[in-house]
């Protein structure tokens, strides 16, 4: 293989590796952030019927909850 071809491949390859590393790093940061695209939710989040208690109101029980 000629020197120009090797040089070109090295530079282009290094850039592809650099881009992949940066993308992987960005993806990891995005994955660790709250509010990611895919995650396993709680049952409450998957099925909510109007009238269900909200998570924030867990200790705010009223007479209806005793029924």
């Amino acid at each position: 293989m000629s020197l120009p071809f090797v040089t070109w491949c090295c530079i282009a390859g290094l850039f592809v590796v650099l881009l992949l590393v940066r993308l992987a790093r960005m993806a990891r940061v995005c994955f660790n952030r709250p509010g990611r695209i895919f995650e396993i939710g709680t049952e409450r989040e998957e099925m909510f019927i109007p009238g269900d208690r909200l998570k924030l109101d867990e200790h705010d029980l009223d007479d209806f909850d005793d029924l």
């Binding site: 120009p4 071809f5 040089t7 070109w8 530079i11 282009a12 850039f15």
Partner: peptide, 11 residues
Amino acid sequence: VSAVLAAGDAL
């Protein structure tokens, strides 16, 4: 880097 990559056109 730019010159080497642009030389790919001729290479």
